[in-house]
Design a protein around this nucleic acid. Sequence first.
DNA 1: TTGAAAGCGATACCAG
DNA 2: CTGGTATCGCTTTCAA
Lengths: 361, 361
Amino acid sequence: MGHIPEQPAHRDAERARRRDSPPGPPGPARVSTPTSADVARLAGVSRATVSYVLNNAGSVRISEPTRRRVRAAADELGYVPHAAARSLRAGHSRMVLMPAPAMPVGGLYSHLFSELQWALRRLDYTVVQFGSLGMSGDDAARAWAELRPVAVLAPGDGTLTPRGVHVLARSGAKAVVTLGPQRVEGAHALLMDQRAVGRCAAEHLLGRGSTRIGVVVPSEPGYRTFSAPRLAGVRAAAEARPDARVVPLDLGYDEQSAVELAGRWRELGLDAVFAYNDEYAMLLLRALQDAGVDVPGDTALMGADDLLLGRLLRPRLSTVRMELPSGQRLAELVDRVVRDPAGAPEVHRLLGVEAVRREST
Amino acid sequence: MGHIPEQPAHRDAERARRRDSPPGPPGPARVSTPTSADVARLAGVSRATVSYVLNNAGSVRISEPTRRRVRAAADELGYVPHAAARSLRAGHSRMVLMPAPAMPVGGLYSHLFSELQWALRRLDYTVVQFGSLGMSGDDAARAWAELRPVAVLAPGDGTLTPRGVHVLARSGAKAVVTLGPQRVEGAHALLMDQRAVGRCAAEHLLGRGSTRIGVVVPSEPGYRTFSAPRLAGVRAAAEARPDARVVPLDLGYDEQSAVELAGRWRELGLDAVFAYNDEYAMLLLRALQDAGVDVPGDTALMGADDLLLGRLLRPRLSTVRMELPSGQRLAELVDRVVRDPAGAPEVHRLLGVEAVRREST
DNA sequence: TTGAAAGCGATACCAG
DNA sequence: CTGGTATCGCTTTCAA
């Protein structure tokens, strides 16, 4: 009989308090959350047996009648295993943590997001998005680490620091992967190099004879991690051409801001503009037209993202189409790294870009 | 001395296997994840003391030197508490689970989403989004229940069933709340009644003299939970007017589909159309104009969502603007229900609607 | 002020 | 084929 609890009184009190705590919101009064012990009791077997049956343990053979009794009991009680207890005991979980990006990003990215979730689930991971709004870098990493995920797929937007990566690794994360424009020392990276977008746009515009190129930089602070490299990409492409000039243009996502920018268009003397993306392009297009600037006659205009809506404008909007690899592939990469964490950090370039010429350039 | 472990050999082996498992991906070779026991050892105190110090336990007074030693040790080891172990011991967590909606929804909704996250974090909850793509109803609910969240904020799109609610409640969720167009028996509801949107649009159009009203119903299956009630709302408003007629119009989100619809516009004989939302409205507008239909002369056109882009069209798009309450308020509601789970399910109507007339009606 | 120890729920070993 | 039991990491009561 091993040992005897010395003063179990307070224990029991605590448990009792929990077990007949206030009934849940709906349905009949609830007294407690059933555990595997409750199932065992009801089925007249031991907890071990319950565990075997419910997990379809292959190495142990349980008689069919027993299995049925256990299952029936679990069903009757509405038993649901306790994930925390399980992973505590197991020493690891199959949780993939995907901290949500600080800024809501475009449809392409979120499409990849859901594909990825799907694919990871098929590989038997539990995908959990963690809203880390309003935490800064290392705090966020610590918060993620508390959940002991087996893998972390963080936005590559500068939130995660090398120290954060270290904390996560030490907390048992087998794979730390960033997904976005920046990479982080020590972590694997799925790099979506936004400079390529700028470069692609610039090359298209330069190729069509423009030399004074405006580049819209959204005023909204959240877009900095995207807009800065896009601008840099334009600059890089322009450097190859001594006659080219690049002019950054602040633009807020509102009509007023666009009207102001269009108002001083003549003095800017631009013959082309890369508008960050299709939405800003649409905003700017209307303002330019209202100001009497002909597109593409006076100024060529280019967006990015290849939104359906951009295709509907007059003139139809030229754009940079981006292509991301399938979530399937990324999920496989994560899985591979989880299974063999020893490898050196991998860096994959993901973003395919392609200029789509329509009527605005 | 209570009891003596009888055959600890295999135990130790198992632990050892884990503790010097393959080194983590980055940084120096890792041997193990530090636990509070490691911190205690390094600081030369007991685990209890570590816990007291790290949780700033008010009821116990620990000497300042000890506190410092403990903190230093935790820091040096990169100790991060194990959330699962903690909540297992505590018997409850402060996790609010927000299953991500099956379909990516509009900016308004996702804005509310992040506000809500923010507000909940301020109330000291841990917000976790759970991708439940590709699970159906009760499976999803069981998966959520495994995490033992204190509250579940599920999309009110029909995924959650009354049985699901029951499972969650039994698993200890103090608050089960749906957020969306439908409510569920037994759960609290933050109801965004989409019929109001349709009604608002219809009243606006009827008020301006239209009687034959087309209603765009997106072909994309994910929008059904929104489009059906919007259509119903239009019908409800039209019933008050014996001369009014309502015609549902299938429309896929692609140009081809819009061109086809516009092609048979004359024979439809509509003098107004509610286009589901601004995006479908923009799609349809272009096609109508290309087909020689004058908007609003021949047909009035109305969207919903009040997107900036809709304002940029010619004619500027009339729309239904929706207003949602602040995330702050919803978070407080969740918090209130968590603290006092006994109350009957509450149903709150959230959606404020308002017709915004511009140039297309 | 600190330490010893019980126990949250689930699992997997070994013995019976 | 089934049961007893130690263990995961952490918190908290009681005793020293």
